[in-house]
């Protein structure tokens, strides 16, 4: 039914996570967190395995995955970009920042570049309002960003390879 097949290793990982949480349906969110941590995203087959282990319908798992914006069903880029659209960042021009990221990366929010290097998302507040507008790339936080900086920052990541 599902279009993609998981590797045996990925299946083992998902089962291991479920068992770590004693296949407890009450731990669904924690299980999803850890699976996404390990695999990078939560495609349909992963959700089906979790549903099977926890003895709950796959529709329940899917409902939770689509409810929380943190969870993703498509693989994130190697360098996930998140632009803060919280109030402080927004009034200091986060929307223009986001537009520039879209233009430079050539992708829309929620998408990943074809080479798999970058993905683009929005979030609400990373607790660095004093540095607004803020964006994060991987674990790195960039403050007081100007749209003009973005091309340079991205090219730095590309040069890293």
């Amino acid at each position: 039914m599902s279009e993609m097949k998981l590797s045996c290793e990925a299946v083992r990982q998902v089962e291991e996570v479920c068992e770590k949480f004693h296949n407890d349906p009450g731990e669904l969110i924690a299980i999803l967190h850890e699976c996404q941590d390990r695999l990078g995203y939560l495609p349909e087959p992963v959700q089906r395995i979790i549903a099977g282990k926890l003895c709950i319908p796959a529709s329940k798992v899917y409902g939770v995955v689509t409810f929380y914006s943190f969870f993703t069903m498509s693989p994130k880029g190697k360098h996930p970009v998140s632009v803060c659209l919280g109030t402080a960042c927004y009034v200091r021009g986060a929307d223009k920042l986001l537009e520039e990221f879209k233009r430079v990366l050539g992708i829309d929010v929620g998408q990943t570049t074809p080479d798999g290097k970058f993905s683009l998302d929005c979030l609400r507040c990373v607790g660095a309002c004093g540095l607004a507008p803020v964006a994060t790339i991987g674990d790195k936080v960039y403050g007081r960003l100007n749209p003009a900086d973005i091309k340079r920052i991205i090219s730095e990541f590309e040069a890293e390879e």
């Binding site: 709950i56 319908p57 529709s59 329940k60 899917y62 409902g63 689509t66 409810f67």
Partner: peptide, 13 residues
């Protein structure tokens, strides 16, 4: 879900 235990329909997003 609760009556039929079919578990197909559910809220998403």
């Amino acid at each position: 879900n609760n009556v039929q235990s079919v578990g197909v329909l559910g809220a998403i997003r």
